[in-house]
Structures are given as structure tokens and as C-alpha cells.
Design a protein around this nucleic acid. Sequence first.
DNA 1: ATTCTTTTTGATAATGATTACTATTACTAG
DNA 2: CTAGTAATAGTAATCATTATCAAAAAGAAT
Lengths: 129, 129
Amino acid sequence: MNKTVQRTVIFEELHGVKIHPTADEVYAMARKRMPNISIATVYRNLETMATNGDILRLDIAGKRRRYDADLSKHYHLRCRSCGGVSDISQAAISQVTQKLEKLKGVSGIEGYSLEFRGICEHCQNGEVK
Amino acid sequence: MNKTVQRTVIFEELHGVKIHPTADEVYAMARKRMPNISIATVYRNLETMATNGDILRLDIAGKRRRYDADLSKHYHLRCRSCGGVSDISQAAISQVTQKLEKLKGVSGIEGYSLEFRGICEHCQNGEVK
DNA sequence: ATTCTTTTTGATAATGATTACTATTACTAG
DNA sequence: CTAGTAATAGTAATCATTATCAAAAAGAAT
């Protein structure tokens, strides 16, 4: 993994924002400092960094993949209006998860999705789908 | 909303499975009964049915959209191996959400994502992104 | 049932996001 | 400095989904 100007720019730009940008948004930010960086370079490096554990690839609903420079465990709020993703504090989440039923009453919160990842019985038994 | 053979087939096939298929998978199932149904018809009808509230459009991580004929409130497990999505009972979820920290110990569960939807402060203040 | 109007279909083109490819350029050992 | 490897820009290809549109099917009215 060589050090290149492009990689540094991408990494720094991702660290510079509190939102969780898509590759496209990182591309737009990087372009300001490096006008002819390629969109392919941005996609490629975000994926590599995520695989190396240097940044987080947010596996979240929506058709555009998002990345996060904050590696600590935290949760997200997706805005119905702008489509952006922002953080929810761990403290807030704890309260909320203890009373999921009352969620709808929380200001601004309209819904949530909870998805678990693992191996289903089917696959555990070695059956071919 | 007229009644057509295609619509009936799509609806019935979706009801016939416990998995939560993608449009592609519904297409494959429908084809067995109606060899020259168009993939566009499947996409179109799944979307229409979801909008009408006849089926659920699962807004879930992953690049392929999934649909569910079970309208009751429930949660999902995505399999790392086959990529499929299966159900998790409400009872199980209740226990789990009460002790999220112990999650990793549960057999087969390797991770989860929790996403809230609503309007962020930014948009609530009418700021343009 | 026949005609008229509207909806739906099948086939395919278009789109948007992401990934693959490739010739060229930049790093890094030695 | 030079050979060898890795990374880049530019662009083509792919994948999932959506849009388009002429032809076929449904429903309504006669």
C-alpha cells in the first residue's frame, strides 16, 4: 500500500467532515484540492481503506454506499429530506433501544430498521441454495 | 388497479415463500408458471403493490431491493453466506434489544445495523444542503 | 358481443452507482 | 539510476432499476 497524494487527499477529506459521504461526495471534495483526480481512484481507495480497516464502510439501506472516518461504535440517522446520514450518540441509543415501542414519540424519529448479520440455518447445514 | 394474470402470479409467488426475495428472484419464480412474463412487469408490480401497502418493500442494506408478503412487524437476518434474508421473531428481538452488548455471544449472530429515519436538524431548520 | 377508453404488458433503451480494464505514470527497493 | 511493482486517469462494462412506447388486454358503455 504505497503512499500517494490522492490517497492522502481522500483520507483527509473524509476526516474533515461530520457527515458520512458517498464516494461521489468524497470525489467532489477531493476535486477542490486536486481537480483531475479520477472518480475511479476515489471508489478504489475508499474500498481499499475500508477493507484495511482504516475507515468504515457503512452497510446501510439506500442505493449509495457511504463511508465514515470515525471507527468508534455508533449509530446513524438517515434524513428523509436530504438523504444524508448523521450520528446518534451511544447514550441516546441506549435509552431508545430499551423502549423501542415508544420510539415514534421521539421528536424527528419516524422509523428505524434493525438488521442482523450471520449465517442462517440453511447455510449452517451446508445446503446449497 | 386492474386484475391481471401477471399480478396474480407475482402476488401468489411472493406469498408462497418464507424468504424475502429480490425482484429477480420473484421473476424466476413467476417464470415457471408464466414463461414469458417480462422482468419489467415484475419490477413494476412489486413497486405498485408496495406503494399500495399490499406487500412490504424492505428498506434494508444491500444493493438489491427485497420484498415481503408478510405485513406484520418483524425483523430480519441477513446471511453472510447466501445473502438471503430470513425472519427473526418478535420475542427473540425483544430479548436481544434489551442486552445489545451481549449480542456477539448469540449463536450465529455476527453483527447488526440499526438505522433510524427522520428529519435531521439541518433540514428541520430549512437549510439547503 | 362490439366498440371505445384506459390500463397493463413485453421488449428494450436509458439511467445511476459501482467495478473492471488498460495504457501510462509514480513509487520503492536494490 | 533502473527494474519491477503498484497506483492512477480515463473510460468501458456491469448490475440493478426505471423509463419509454407500441401492442395487447381489461373494463366500461353501448
